[in-house]
Design a protein around this nucleic acid. Structure first.
Lengths: 353, 353
DNA sequence: TTGTAGGCGTTATCAC
DNA sequence: GTGATAACGCCTACAA
């Protein structure tokens, strides 16, 4: 593409002021303008005033790119989400941005759609941005990703799930165990035929982890875990179909409790139960995951687990800030912040034997 | 290494390889390595192989920061959201990231929480990143922000709402009008006592815009618009309270239709109606906004408007890419892409006079 | 408090 | 096809 026919063409972007323009207008050197932004107290009162006026007038904004290159440390925190469109990650992102706002750090986001390979790709891209810190949302990276991460000399925080023995800081809760929590909740009530319902879309590895936790707990209690995979892509449909199948079974064969991998599926079941001639929780106890906004309002109100989404995002950002502020000499070990994933017991999970 | 001839400590970040390291290992000059990444066809086959091996081995990743500075064009698209935690913006973000992924552009996100001032601040920060393009999600910026935008010589797209006479490209739908659409839907059915219910939190200016559209339509039809502001911060509670108040009124005084500013509020009303002794839509017709996942599953199923969230994000990104690819000489006018905000008529809005 | 020199890692330009 | 050189806009180190 024919770009420039100018002879001594400057590579400068047209129209963008630089620190030198400001300096020239103020009759000072560039470094003074730099100080005005980075260490105002080192600039005399009068000059500060003058610079402020000029900067406001021409609308100069310092280049983060040049600054980052020169100083060797950018002002970006990079975060890889697994599914940006879900409320889970929305909560995380909000927690992070809220916490980072005051620090002047920018959040650079990528979406990995629960794929390890996409995550690796995102990490690779991020490395090129010289991130100030990295926030990830899984703990099982590809070997290549893990290698890049070890090579990076910046704070790395894994947010959401926590697991033992990881070489990075972590903020969240033990995701696998939450599956056991729900199993336990029903076992305590004397239920024995308990079923875990997975979404048809196998991409969400977190649901699988919970299913694993469920299975372990069931085995520990001496029962065979029954895990079912939904037939419908739409989560509400999946739940509705599930409860309809249950209604079609002989009462003695029915599951006494259904643990859905998400509140959406559970809601599908609850909202459809009446049409199937079922009364919940009498005919079947129900639990979900995620504490969706509607969970408490369903009839019956849905028992579910509430992961501290926003708080995890916030704490991940705080951990990053703390690590950045910390004396690099003071080698801290790996931080592991546990945030609650609370079991909210509501009407839907009352077992009727 | 050629660079250590300086007496001073290198400002280089420890451990990070540079293009020169790769070049030295391969016995070529830095520019060749640069070409390997940016124009591989200009590098001989053998060299390419050799470079690939070295790069893989040491895990070199080019610095986006340095590259952006040198080339004058970064690889970031900056987007300012109004409420990252809402499904609306989650959909937008997903649409944008999906569309941008292949292009090698990174999405830099900020959250303005429906505040003009925070938006201005975000734009100011973004300007420092030399964005390749900017995506905004409102069309009423502060004067300072507007000035910065005009000064920026990059594609700017306003996504979500569209309005006439704006100096930027737009993708979305006329938000104000959607309020009228719902009014019309009820007026057509012969309802006259129609009420619009706003959330208690006044930060969402979009709800206000829809309320305005509602009011205009009502006046046009010769009726006094009745707009009510919810008393509860929680949207479900607000809706529930609303329907309870309605139940307490004499039948002749009751609104015949309630237009809630969000599906959450509408759901609160629907889920609570039975407890109030009401049967919907017989006792009151209901409509919401947003087409939440649960909307179609409520009993009665909720009539609502479905903004094309994902598609708007996607189209905003596509518009950006198209503008970037376009010959800058070919001065295109302002693009305005209209995407549907469809009225989904379901059971809840059947008016019983 | 202010200024000078040089470098951060890459790419544009032009030469070979 | 490959290389030398000089930017890009700012900041660190050191000097005055």
């Amino acid at each position: 593409m024919t770009r420039s026919n100018s002879l001594r063409a400057s590579r400068r972007k047209a129209g963008a002021y630089t620190i030198h323009d400001v300096a020239a207008l103020a009759g000072v050197s560039a470094i003074t303008v730099s100080r005005y932004f980075n260490a105002p107290e080192k600039v005399s009162e009068g000059l500060r005033e003058k610079l402020r006026e000029i900067i406001d007038r021409i609308g100069y904004v310092p280049s983060q790119v040049a600054g980052g290159l020169a100083s060797g440390h950018g002002r970006v925190v990079c975060a890889v989400m697994q599914n940006i469109a879900s409320s889970t990650f929305a909560g995380l992102v909000k927690g992070m941005t809220d916490e980072l706002r005051a620090s002047g750090l920018q959040l650079l986001l990528a979406n990995a759609q629960y794929s390890r390979e996409l995550e690796e790709q995102a990490i690779r891209t991020f490395v090129g941005w010289h991130p100030t810190a990295l926030i990830l949302t899984r703990d099982d990276h590809t070997p290549a990703a893990e290698a890049m991460l070890r090579g990076l000399n910046v704070p790395i925080v894994e947010a959401w799930g926590v697991a033992k023995g990881r070489p990075f800081h972590q903020v969240g809760f033990p995701n696998v165990e939450t599956g056991g929590t729900l199993a336990e909740h029903f076992l305590e009530q004397g239920a024995t035929r308990i079923q875990f319902v997975m979404p048809s879309n196998p991409e969400d590895f977190r649901a699988e982890q919970r299913a694993r936790g469920f299975a372990e707990q069931m085995k520990r209690a001496g029962f065979t875990p029954h895990i079912q995979v939904a037939q419908h892509d739409d989560e509400f449909d999946a739940g509705a179909f599930c409860i309809a199948s249950l209604a079609a079974q002989a009462k003695s064969a029915r599951a006494q409790a259904l643990i859905f991998a998400s509140d959406n599926m559970a809601a599908g079941a609850i909202l459809h139960a009446e049409e199937c001639g079922l009364s919940l929780p009498r005919d079947c106890a129900i639990a979900g995951f995620g504490d969706a906004a509607f969970a408490a309002r369903l009839k019956p109100a849905l028992t579910t687990l509430r992961p501290a989404r926003y708080e995890i995002g916030q704490q991940a950002a705080r951990t990053v800030l703390a690590l950045l502020a910390a004396d690099p000499a003071a080698k801290v070990g790996m931080i592991q912040e546990l945030l609650p994933c609370e079991l909210l017991v509501r009407e839907s999970s009352l077992v009727h034997l």
